[in-house]
Amino acid sequence: MNKLKDTDIQAAIGWVLRTGVFLSVGVVMFGAAIYIYRHGYDATDYRTFKGVPDFVKLSGVVNGMLTLHGRAIIQGGIILLIATPVIRVAFSAIGFVLEKDYLYAFITLLVLIIIFASMLTGHAG
């Protein structure tokens, strides 16, 4: 009984990871097509750190995506990719609750809290 439920969680987590990965790669590739079509022969310069342009920042990325900026769309895909492991952890928490494995539901929740704490305070490895 326990075993069966565990494989269910495994299947669900595998699905979350695959969907997240394919979705983000799809979005990245779409943005890449626009970016390379427009800027493919531009010269690159990453020698000095200038940060990223405003339309690629977290705050401006949605606007940049709507105006079909290639780089903003790529960044949107990257954000999806970053969200995937976090969504995976959230899904396992739900899975453990459904399995009535409250010890692991608690452990998973604790991990989620630590992740969000380090994101919000800016102290991350």
Partner: peptide, 18 residues
């Protein structure tokens, strides 16, 4: 993923390279 959110805000993650 936790670090990436912080780096995203600091402008370390450039879409052209990523």
């Amino acid at each position: 993923a936790a670090s990436a959110v912080v780096y995203l805000q600091r402008g370390y993650i450039d879409p052209g390279l990523s």
